[in-house]
């Protein structure tokens, strides 16, 4: 099971207008995990390496990517970070441009199950969600909007 989406995200939300490359976006996402002690410093570079090695499949749906590395690449506990890139960034994927860079670290294969389950509900209309989020001004606004989306959609599912 593990932590739910919003608990795992905490206050690790950052909004930027542009980034120079997808590598920079992933690095910033990883940095937030490192600063909060969720991952070791090498983890951010590993996330970039994984994407270079295996391709941009981490851009899983239009407008959203979920960078991550292996548990043994320096994940200390389970946690997320969200980098919002208002102008979008190209990952070289058919799901470009990516506006939501949702990085995560997990120390095992179970801690993030509840997060993935809630991600499924978020992904169902992720294009609309991304469009609303890029117009937000502060991390707090992003967080409360996400809360609203996740709560209303999981209620509908029941």
């Amino acid at each position: 099971m593990g932590l739910d989406f919003l608990s795992a995200l905490g206050d690790r939300i950052q909004l930027v207008d542009t980034v120079s490359s997808w590598q920079e976006a992933v690095k910033m996402g990883g940095q937030m995990l490192v600063e909060h002690g969720i991952a070791n410093p090498e983890y951010a570079d590993k996330m970039i390496a994984v994407c270079q090695e295996l391709g941009p499949y981490i851009a899983i749906a239009p407008g959203i990517a979920i960078p991550h590395a292996r548990p043994e690449d320096g994940a200390k506990s389970f946690g997320l970070s969200l980098l919002v890139v208002k102008q979008g960034v190209e990952f070289g994927s058919h799901n470009d441009p990516v506006y939501l860079v949702l990085s995560f670290a997990t120390p095992d294969k179970e801690s993030h199950l509840e997060f993935l389950r809630q991600l499924a509900t978020l992904l169902q209309n992720v294009e609309d969600v991304a469009r609303v989020i890029v117009d937000k001004q502060t991390p707090e606004q992003v967080r409360s909007y996400l809360q609203q989306v996740i709560t209303s959609q999981s209620n509908e599912r029941r």
Binding site: E53, P71, K109, L119, A120
Partner: peptide, 13 residues
């Protein structure tokens, strides 16, 4: 998926 922990698990569910 590349690592088997993220998207693959998501897909399995």
């Amino acid at each position: 998926c590349g690592l088997g922990t993220g998207t693959a698990l998501f897909l399995k569910m």
